[in-house]
Amino acid sequence: MIGKPESLRDAYGEELTRIGDADRDVVVLDADLSSSTKTSIFGKKFPERFFNMGISEQSMVATAAGLALSGKKVYASTFAVFLMRAYEQLRQSVCYNNVNAKFVVTHSGITVGEDGATHQIVEDVGIMSGLPNMSVIVPVDAPETRSVIRHLHDSTSTPFYVRLTREKFPVLNDADYEFKVGKSVTYRDGSDMSIIASGSMVSFSLEAAEQLKGKGIDARVINMSSIKPMDRDAVLKAARETGRIVTAEEHSIYNGLGSRVAEITSETYPVGVSRIGMRDTFGKSGRSWDLFDYFHMGVSDIVRISEEAFRKESSYENIS
């Protein structure tokens, strides 16, 4: 089930070039990071439709809005952390005008690794989710990344924030997998509890579920790549059918996947929700995969917290 790691940003650059080949209205912007975000692949093929705006993120976002208001289908990329500098341009020029511009960012979360705290943004999903008209997608692997880019191009005309990573992630989806906005995918069914995860934490959750099985706990694992809009039905189904939810995200536990799941359940069908993620802290330089343990977000942490959640919920049931 867990395949070999593949680069999400390479998948993005290649898919972007494919849709740009078929559709002359596709234009791409970057802010001096095209060699890292992989928009350079598009830029080499279609130099006349590629705009490297220099180290000027605010200018890039406002320009993206102008191109979109003139009928272009716009893709703009930089590292996740640096797009945040243009928050207010995203708010006023992009989201308030509700234009067809997609912001596909790379190097999000702690898997930036050695570049350290300044680059490891773990607040972006929350910041972007707060914007009216903005949708937020966190692809789990390279096939999903390709599908997201195709789907957004073919079926949407509103602003999107697509959060990619520096590191390669294990492939979990088949090549013909089709992403849909607002839909999740259940990778593993289970009846004792549910782990709702996004991004890097999905494959960790699958590993954790395997270990939980050995401890007699049957865990469901859901890939919630569409953070906004979220698959409410899948969340509520998990709440009703399994009674206990653990969320896992390479992001702050505030204002991300975990918060949103807790909102949905508490409004409609309250169950215990334990959130795994960055606990109100900045990141740190180190090897990407070591940082998960350092910040208590590794496989063993998912196992431990899932077990705790399982037992806590059980005891509640015993009381009632």
Binding site: F82, A117, T118, K284, S285, G286, R287, Y294
Partner: peptide, 24 residues
Amino acid sequence: RKLPSKLEGHVHYGVPGVEASTGS
């Protein structure tokens, strides 16, 4: 650039002599 050093990948306030964190 390694755990658990304070010598972060980008200039880090907290390293003696550094006056402000930068990197953006």
